[in-house]
């Protein structure tokens, strides 16, 4: 079980784009450790007969027909946008990424 270090908390916060104070880092580190430890108990259930699973119901191959359904109108699509221009969502330019 990997330890939840303050560095790891800062890394996760950066990935999630959440600003955290040093006090919060310490607080979250212990809380996250507890959560991870609790979740890890399911590992004990996995054996040769019981496989790790990501879905509770044994289902596979649920497919949709390739038939076009109505979409939203442009006005509907943009109705919740904070800002828009020429039928597009307007967002701040994000630099240093592609």
């Amino acid at each position: 079980m990997s330890e939840i270090t303050p560095e790891l908390v800062r890394h996760l916060a950066a990935l999630a784009r959440i600003e955290v104070s040093e006090a919060e880092v310490a607080q979250f580190a212990s809380q996250l450790a507890l959560i991870v430890e609790s979740v890890a108990t399911v590992k004990a259930a996995v054996s040769d007969e019981i496989f790790a699973t990501s879905h509770p119901i044994p289902m596979a191959n649920v497919f949709r027909e390739d038939v076009v359904k109505p979409s939203l109108t442009q006005a509907q699509a943009l109705s919740g946008a904070a800002d828009s221009e020429s039928g597009r969502f307007k967002v701040s330019a994000i630099l240093d990424e592609d």
Binding site: E85, S86, R88, F89, K90, V91, S92, A93, I94, L95, E97, D98
Partner: peptide, 9 residues
């Protein structure tokens, strides 16, 4: 993207 002021999606 270099020098862009905003982006449209």
């Amino acid at each position: 993207i270099q020098g862009a002021e905003f982006s449209l999606v």
